[in-house]
Design a protein around this nucleic acid. Structure first.
Length: 340
DNA sequence: TTCCTGAAAA
DNA sequence: TTTTCAGGAA
């Protein structure tokens, strides 16, 4: 009974698999582990459409894990700009260096799990896709598919144990990598969050959620809490066509990224409003930006004074090449306002 | 609990 | 236009 779920899913995958830049066709030899790992890290909390151009650029710049390990940190962070969750980029570098050091990727789920930036999901995905291990790669797509398939009524996150057990029971010994990718494709294209296309689903005859009449309500999620609104200011300081940029602290919000100087706003408190240098300022507009756990209203202040000493650590960057600075989206928005 | 962003829905 | 939502690691 259970084994036919995998068989039906794989038969569907053989004709309906999405073609993605990092993926081997169904049944083909697995791609280079480096490519599998790079794509999976980029796909953490990120859609395939958004990640694809980043994947192509990274691969062109750094075709091997050794090349990435040898890359300057600042260059990697700048290439990551706009993808979000910048701890992933810091972990990417640390992981590349660890892997280069030990002479290649380990080929078991447990060893992969030890590397920086590889949690339960990514370790299982790389083990299955790159090394053919029968590991259960459970991302949000798989969670949704399995919760519906077995009509798991318990709300998330408590349901994770039951979902894991159910998933492990249907992972096939043959083609576990294709199985993992098929589950993700099914979740992304058929068993979608809002209006699942049950009529097109290769698993509809197995699906107990469908018998309840309304599979779309699964998985049940715990209610989310509302986001506070914070206020802050970013400072645009220009001199002879160049802008003053700083490097943010290595950890925390937008950690390690190039940025405009600001007044210290955070998730927990508004900024002080204090400018990094004294002199006249004029208003450059307001940027609204939403983070996971708070909304931010960032005022942009434009320097109108004429004393540029006492700026501290930072660098002058040509204002007309600000796109190339690798600013995270929040500051890219602020820069766009300032340049108008 | 702390980390971002862009697409989709309202 | 504004709001909601999708998507894992530490």
């Amino acid at each position: 009974m259970e084994h036919s779920i995998a068989a039906d899913l794989l038969a569907w995958y053989d004709r309906a698999a999405r073609t993605l830049p990092w993926r081997a066709p169904p049944g083909a030899a697995p791609p280079d582990p480096y490519r599998v790992w790079l794509s999976e890290v980029m796909l953490q909390q990120t859609t395939t459409v958004h990640a694809a151009p980043y994947y192509a650029r990274f691969l062109a710049l750094w075709p091997t894990v050794e090349a990435l390990a040898a890359a300057p940190e600042a260059a990697v962070m700048a290439e990551w700009a706009g993808l979000g969750y910048y701890a992933r980029a810091r972990n990417l570098i640390a992981c590349a260096r660890a892997v280069a050091e030990r002479g290649g990727f380990p080929d078991t789920e447990a060893e992969l799990r030890e590397l920086p930036g590889l949690g339960a999901y990514t370790a299982a995905a790389v083990a299955a896709i790159a090394f053919g291990r029968p590991a259960a790669a459970i991302d949000a797509n798989v969670e949704r598919v399995v919760a519906r398939l077995f009509a798991i009524e318990e709300p998330l996150p408590a349901a994770r144990k039951a979902i894991r057990a159910a998933t492990e029971a249907i992972v096939p010994p043959a083609r576990p990598g294709d199985f993992a990718q098929a589950m993700m494709d099914l979740g992304a294209t058929v068993c979608t969050p809002r209006s699942p296309k049950c009529l097109l689903c290769p698993l509809s005859t197995h699906c107990r959620g469908r018998l309840t009449g309304d599979p779309a309500r699964l998985p049940i999620k715990a209610p989310k809490k509302l986001r506070p609104l914070r206020a802050g200011t970013a400072f645009w300081i220009e001199k002879d066509g160049a802008v003053w940029l700083v490097r943010r602290a290595g950890k925390g919000m937008l950690g390690g990224m190039r940025a405009l100087p600001d007044d210290g706003w955070s998730a927990r408190a508004d900024g002080s409003g204090e400018a990094p240098i004294s002199g006249a300022w004029r208003a450059g507009g307001l940027v609204r930006h939403t983070f996971t756990h708070f909304d931010l209203e960032l005022g942009v202040a434009l320097y109108a004074g004429e004393r540029w000493d006492d700026l501290g650590e930072g660098e002058w960057w040509p204002a007309d090449e600000i796109e190339a600075a690798g600013l995270p989206t929040l500051f890219a928005k602020a820069a766009r306002l300032a340049i108008l």
